[in-house]
């Protein structure tokens, strides 16, 4: 049996909104480590990895490891029926082919339950070895989203280059070219507004802007985003979910031949 009570129900709504366009179906795994998911997009270029640790839940009960296959669009439809301030509880009985989402209003005057059919999903998992990245950039998530959106009106791919100068986002299209350079900036009022660049080696990687734009849907989950980059390796784009865990995207770079 499984019962997970999340006081910040709005968080789960935001998680679903950030991944439902990238991935259709996914197994949610529940274990002592937390409530997690690893799923690949249909073109096998991006992987989303989510972890919500048990400490973030008011009640985290799961007496054995459970994997629940869900259609993310259907799950998002159900979670849209929860208010942003609602408490969300997930419940599943042993051996059941359904999961129940219970929504409680903060004042406890409205309680709703939605039962959703589970599905069997054969998902293969990727192993992500620890890597020493050539460069790690932390910047405001809204700024990163803005740059990806702006560049996608000009070109289809973005070259992300980290040098001593800063981090450069470049694109090229039929109408012209665009370059945005962000320099390290720690002289800010709030720490989340800082841009911090750790560079061991210069690195330059090319990515499809369609994917980059898709993963910036996680922006409402965190004020900052971290880009971990190494030559010839997928980028890791991480949004930390305060005190609970993270949502990470692994995105394969394009390669010139």
């Amino acid at each position: 049996m499984l019962e997970l009570r999340l006081v910040q129900g709005g968080l789960l709504k935001k998680v679903l909104e950030s991944i439902k366009d990238l991935v259709n179906d996914a197994n949610f795994d529940c274990s002592a480590t937390g409530f997690s998911l690893q799923a690949m997009d249909s073109s096998q270029v991006a992987v989303v990895a989510l972890l919500l640790r048990p400490e973030g839940f008011e009640r985290y009960w799961c007496d054995r490891n459970i994997s629940m296959g869900m259609n993310l669009n259907n799950m998002a439809k159900m979670l849209k029926c929860a208010g942003n301030d609602d408490i969300i509880t997930l419940k599943a009985e042993d051996g059941s082919d359904t999961v129940t989402f219970m929504f409680e209003s903060p004042t406890q005057d409205k309680i709703a339950d939605f039962e959703m059919k589970l599905m069997d999903i054969n998902s293969e998992r990727l192993g992500f070895p620890e890597a020493d990245y050539h460069a790690i950039v932390r910047m405001p998530s809204s700024e990163f989203a803005r740059i990806c959106k702006d560049l996608s009106s000009i070109g289809n791919t973005v070259v992300i280059s980290v040098t001593k100068e800063g981090v450069r986002f470049s694109t090229r299209g039929d109408i012209g070219t665009a370059n945005v350079v962000c320099r390290q900036n720690t002289a800010v009022d709030k720490p989340e507004e800082a841009t911090i660049i750790e560079m061991n080696e210069p690195v330059s990687l090319t990515f499809g802007l369609r994917y980059m734009n898709s993963l910036t849907k996680a922006t409402p989950l965190s004020n900052t985003v971290t880009l971990s980059l190494s030559s010839g390796l997928p980028a890791v784009v991480e949004y930390r979910i305060a005190e609970m865990g993270y949502i990470r995207f692994y995105l394969a770079p394009k390669i010139e031949e």
Binding site: Q44, V45, A46, R125, L126, A252, I255, E256
Partner: peptide
């Protein structure tokens, strides 16, 4: 020519 490899080219599958 710019190619888009899939993630399995980089990481092992379990």
């Amino acid at each position: 020519l710019i190619l888009q490899p899939c993630l399995m080219c980089f990481y092992p599958l379990y």
